[in-house]
Amino acid sequence: MSSTSEKFLVGIFDDEDILLHGVDGVRDKGVKIHEVYSPFPVHGLDEALGYKRTRLPIAAFIFGLTGTALALTMQIWMLGYDWPMIIGGKTLLHCLHSFRYFELTVLLSALGMVATFFIVSDMKPYKTPRSYDIRSTDDKHVMAIDLASNKLSKEDISRILKESGASEVNEKNF
């Protein structure tokens, strides 16, 4: 499809435990894994693949702080300075207003984090993802290996994949 052809070897794994061993096996042999696609989250897979922890919680925290600050400034400025009113004999600014700080904190934190997640994972409604094997959303774990970024030959990688537990090995070009 694309003008610059990319060649991938695709190993299919039937079971998450075999997959986890397989990932270790393949990486031990010096094969660089492009990515693994699973129908459900496999615990320990990110560590096996050597991924660093995601920094999304930090994003969530920063967005949350923004929400708190926004609510606080809004409140103090609007009620304390811009248009003070005598309401029920209460003082203009008091701690009972604080519910909204919490709500805005949560709102901005959640929305900001999810937006960040979509952006860093490049997810959008009109995007069509690459499908290395269509069964990867059903019941198969799919390990994609980019031949261009590996020094080993196609046959060697294919053998390594089989040895590590892949039930089939296919070739996929984009």
Partner: peptide, 11 residues
């Protein structure tokens, strides 16, 4: 006054 969400009744 306290309970009006839009401050339609104030002192």
């Amino acid at each position: 006054e306290t309970v009006c969400p839009v401050a339609a009744t104030t002192h």
